[in-house]
């Protein structure tokens, strides 16, 4: 009887601790979001979307930074998406069991979790040093390299879920392989692949470290891709650590914009994947 009651107590304590851990996790999520909303909302006004980053002590917005982030993300995704999908296609459709494919899958997973600042250093040495100046191209390249493994990996996972019968049925009709891929398999995996692209956008949107020494930053409006370009994360970093109140306020506004964008992308991606993912 006493043994049983001590076992019961251990059980209760352990499960209570597990529930407490869950509470701690949710508490931090709530704490971060509440801080963001409280501090960010007071900074959000139409001006933030209409005016450029100000010099210290005057009013302004984040227009040039938002534009820079959108432009570099767009270039990164436009380049990384086809490469990522094609690479994922090779790794699932054309190479089952080959040595190269195993190595490439492994390397892709390493790149997926590799520190993004390393990607920044890499792009700095190949795109900034040779041209002797920072540029939006370099920033976009760094973001693209970060997006690529995400899209590649999701494509692999999603293509693996497409039933083999579809491939066999297409082959039985005499469809060439590439047409089977583009007209049958990609269509079947469409929402899953789109999920991967959305997750890649979400991942890239908040990346700061690789932009610090590729796109750098720009106080002014610039649409020149060959020159340094303002972008939200680096502006937030710079403004938050500045001693000026209005800069810090803008940093919180920018932080709220970025977080809302990323969480929205994540939620859309999840609801898209809900239908096609087996788990």
């Amino acid at each position: 009887m006493s043994l049983s009651s001590s076992r019961k107590t251990t059980n209760t304590v352990a499960l209570a601790l597990a529930a407490a851990a869950t509470f701690v996790g949710l508490f931090f999520l709530a704490a971060i979001l509440v801080t963001l909303i409280v501090k960010g909302f007071s900074a959000i006004s139409p001006r933030i979307f209409l005016e450029n980053t100000p010099p210290p002590g005057s009013d302004g917005g984040l227009l040039n930074a938002i534009f820079g982030s959108v432009a570099m993300t767009a270039i990164a995704i436009i380049v990384a998406t086809p490469i990522g999908i094609l690479a994922g296609t090779y790794l699932t459709e054309y190479s089952r069991g080959s040595r190269l494919a195993e190595v490439a899958k492994f390397i892709n997973d390493i790149l997926l979790s590799a520190p993004s600042i390393i990607i920044g250093l890499f792009v700095y040495t190949i795109l900034v040093v040779p041209f002797h100046h920072f540029s939006a191209w370099a920033g976009a390249a760094a973001l693209g390299i970060i997006a690529l493994p995400v899209i590649n990996r999701t494509t692999q996972d999603m293509l693996a879920l497409v039933p083999n019968e579809l491939r066999e049925a297409a082959a039985a009709l005499g469809t060439p392989r590439w047409k089977t891929m583009t007209h049958v398999i990609y269509r079947a995996a469409r929402s899953g692949i789109l999920t991967g692209v959305l997750l890649a956008i979400a991942r890239v949107t908040g990346e700061t470290a690789p932009l610090l020494f590729t796109a750098l930053n720009n106080q002014f409006w610039s649409s020149n891709l060959g020159a340094p370009m303002a972008n939200l994360p680096v502006v937030i970093f710079q403004f938050a650590l500045s001693p000026y109140d209005d800069w810090q306020k803008l940093a919180w506004g920018g932080a709220l914009i970025i977080t809302v964008t990323i969480l929205a992308l994540n939620i859309i991606a999840r609801s898209l994947a809900g239908g096609s993912k087996s788990q």
Binding site: I32, F237, I258, T259
Partner: peptide, 16 residues
């Protein structure tokens, strides 16, 4: 909700 913690970019953790 816990997985959303992974979506929050690192600069936001830094700010907070």
């Amino acid at each position: 909700a816990i997985e959303l913690l992974a979506g929050i970019p690192s600069i936001i953790y830094g700010l907070w």
